[in-house]
Amino acid sequence: MSAATAIGYNFAYLDEQSKRMIRRAILKGVAIPGYQVPFGGREMPLPHGWGTGGMQVTASVIGEADKLKVIDQGADDTTNAVSIRRFFAHTAGVETTELTAEATLIQTRHRIPERPLQADQILIYQVPIPEPLRFIEPRESETRKMHALSEYGAMQVKLYEDVARFGHIATSYDYPVMVNNRYMMDPSPIPKFDNPKMSMMPALQLFGAGFEKRIYAVPPFTQVESLDFDDHPFEVQSWEDACSICGSDHSFLDEVIIDDNGSKMFVCSDTDYCRERVTEGFVGEAPAQLETEQ
């Protein structure tokens, strides 16, 4: 495999000094769960906002023995996931996989796999805007103080408004959490459906924001609580439909529009989970007119 790596570049693209700097930031992040550690983010050959933070974290923790899985929107075959997986296959020559179960590193954009992760796995999130308070207070110097002093009242205001207007909290993704009862953290734009998976997860969770030059972490078995009110507790979304392919009624479903009349079907956003269920013999009720590959 390693014979195929890119000529003229170091293993996994970044030079060892940069990786060491990033690992120090990761260690600090692990030591202070949920705290955003500034780091000397490097320019990457992919655009900012396309996963450069996640890639820098992956590049810094990946070793020759690792098996890498990359997902975007839960799927292994979305364009950006393909592009990043190829990048590491090319620059690190590591083995890649689409199987959640056998991956040692999973880089993700916008989802947490449905299959529970294990202690020997690392989940690396791509983060566009790491600051949960950003849309309340645009100033970095101010938000850092707000974190330092646990001044989180303003974030609660947003939830109050939701309840006042809709009778319940209406934030559906990028739903802020408190980590270890101390730091408010942006879980990256995952659906709030995935929020509960973050808490007490056996796997290490690392978050990289390249554009904003921040790294943060949730160590294994750390409490992660979604913000709410005592009398309006956090809840996740649910679907009336089930996956048309595997029949799952408990996973996050993507809506697919299948004809010009806007007819739709629902399928698992986690393609590996869906495939696994199909091999186990689960079948969904696919619309009759539908052509399927498998």
Partner: peptide, 23 residues
């Protein structure tokens, strides 16, 4: 944000977490 949220903000800033009480 609403008048209620404007008044409630300081309460939430000092740790009040019961929507009904804040309101």
């Amino acid at each position: 944000v609403s008048a209620g949220a404007n008044i409630g903000e300081r309460l939430m800033a000092v740790g009040e977490r019961h929507y009904g009480d804040i309101r």
